[in-house]
Simulated assay, not measured.
Amino acid sequence: MPDRKFLVTFSPHDRHPETTNKVMMTVVIAMLPIIANSIWYYGYYAVKGYVLTTLFCIGFEYLFDKISGRPVAIKDNSALVTGLLLAMNMPAAAPWWTMLVGSFIAIVVSKQVYGGLGQNPFNPALVARVFLLIAWPVEMTSWVKPSPIIHGFLFDTVSSATPLGTLKSDIIAHGHVVTANLATYTDQIIGNVSGCMGGDGAVFVLIGGLFMMNRKVISWHIPISFLGTLFAFTGIIWLINPQRTIDPFLHIVSGGAMLAAFFMATDYVTSPVIKRAQIVFGIGCGLIAGIIRIYGSYPEGTGFAVLIMNAFVPLLDKYMRPLSFGEVKK
């Protein structure tokens, strides 16, 4: 009989055609409606923000890999995604140096020091966002009034409070919601309100999120449990005391709730693998975000909520793991 040769390799033996690069590019494509909406309302400032944060993030990724002797990993496009998400979490008129510092925190401090992609416990863009908010609160809360580019690609920045910021100020000053100061549902949905570049415009975030679901890049478990819990919690408080907060639908379309639910909380590295753990993760995010929004000093709480729940991911995956075939529950 002829000699037979057997090829012995390590797992996995069944390889999926999707690669990290392809998955990240799918996420980038899903972000395009949000980016286009940002440019429509913030013109030059949005373009500057997206360009600088992506260049800074890719640059820091390249430099750290070179200095540490690791293979350069910029081709996996994870730094590109982080840069775009960081820009979406910043005010349109944020100084360039905050984008530089934020990119360093996101790539080097939040990702590379842990070993690179797949090793970081917390979402890099959110770590950078929270760090900048605490370190430079004035620069990170200097919101500008949106102005469609049909009025000019470069416009004078006019200070304007975010809807959630206005809500918090009214409650502190008057002890109740001032209905006349609330943004309309339409403005909230299309993003014609002051805020982070990618945090508003719920319809465009939803388009991107549904696209990722259709491509099976993310599943429904985290976004639905996140937004459903936020809706339920704020709805209960609103029914008990409508003067304490806005209605639950406005909570869903305001601020960064939609962006966090579809693009931040669903990050592969910092979210659970097991489906039922993902539901618990989403519930935790929605509950914490609602508590901070209504009872905390910050008007927005989604970023803090996701980071807090990131810390519980190892426990959720460990204790909610289904039993293997033949395994006896102890």
Results as ranks from 00 to 15, higher is better:
residue 153 F to C: 08
residue 319 Y to V: 07
residue 9 T to P: 11
residue 98 T to N: 11
residue 318 K to G: 10
residue 231 F to S: 11
residue 45 Y to G: 07
residue 36 A to Q: 00
residue 258 M to T: 15
residue 31 M to D: 09
residue 59 G to H: 12
residue 320 M to F: 15
residue 78 S to E: 03
residue 277 A to D: 02
residue 191 G to T: 08
residue 62 Y to I: 13
residue 111 K to G: 14
residue 249 F to I: 15
residue 70 R to V: 14
residue 73 A to L: 08
residue 199 G to P: 11
residue 255 G to C: 07
residue 230 L to W: 01
residue 176 H to Q: 14
residue 277 A to C: 03
residue 323 L to H: 05
residue 232 A to S: 10
residue 74 I to K: 05
residue 325 F to K: 01
residue 8 V to A: 06
residue 47 V to E: 09
residue 48 K to Y: 12
residue 13 H to T: 15
residue 26 T to I: 09
residue 300 E to Y: 07
residue 114 Y to I: 03
residue 74 I to Y: 12
residue 287 L to M: 14
residue 51 V to M: 14
residue 272 P to Q: 01
residue 154 L to F: 09
residue 14 D to I: 13
residue 42 Y to V: 04
residue 40 W to R: 01
residue 176 H to C: 12
residue 183 A to Q: 05
residue 182 L to A: 05
residue 262 F to P: 07
residue 328 V to A: 02
residue 311 A to R: 05
residue 64 F to G: 03
residue 261 A to K: 03
residue 157 T to W: 02
residue 12 P to L: 05
residue 10 F to C: 03
residue 257 A to H: 06
residue 155 F to R: 08
residue 182 L to N: 03
residue 309 M to N: 10
residue 34 I to E: 04
residue 214 N to L: 08
residue 324 S to R: 01
residue 167 L to Y: 01
residue 265 A to R: 00
residue 159 S to A: 14
residue 316 L to W: 05
residue 25 M to T: 07
residue 112 Q to E: 15
residue 80 L to N: 10
residue 322 P to H: 03
residue 275 K to A: 15
residue 278 Q to R: 14
residue 248 P to F: 02
residue 58 I to A: 12
residue 181 N to M: 01
residue 93 A to N: 05
residue 128 A to T: 06
residue 96 W to H: 09
residue 82 T to S: 13
residue 309 M to I: 14
residue 98 T to K: 03
residue 23 V to H: 01
residue 329 K to T: 15
residue 209 G to S: 12
residue 29 I to E: 09
residue 178 V to L: 14
residue 286 G to F: 05
residue 271 S to F: 07
residue 325 F to V: 05
residue 264 M to L: 12
residue 102 G to T: 00
residue 294 I to K: 03
residue 121 P to L: 09
residue 78 S to Q: 06
residue 316 L to T: 13
residue 142 S to P: 06
residue 312 F to S: 14
residue 288 I to M: 04
residue 16 H to D: 15
residue 202 A to N: 06
residue 137 P to M: 03
residue 61 E to F: 04
residue 277 A to L: 01
residue 316 L to F: 13
residue 71 P to C: 01
residue 328 V to R: 00
residue 192 N to L: 10
residue 27 V to C: 11
residue 189 I to F: 08
residue 313 V to C: 10
residue 142 S to D: 11
residue 192 N to M: 11
residue 323 L to R: 05
residue 273 V to F: 12
residue 115 G to S: 07
residue 117 L to F: 10
residue 247 D to A: 09
residue 220 W to C: 01
residue 69 G to N: 11
residue 75 K to Y: 13
residue 42 Y to G: 04
residue 166 T to V: 13
residue 56 F to K: 00
residue 32 L to Y: 08
residue 253 V to R: 01
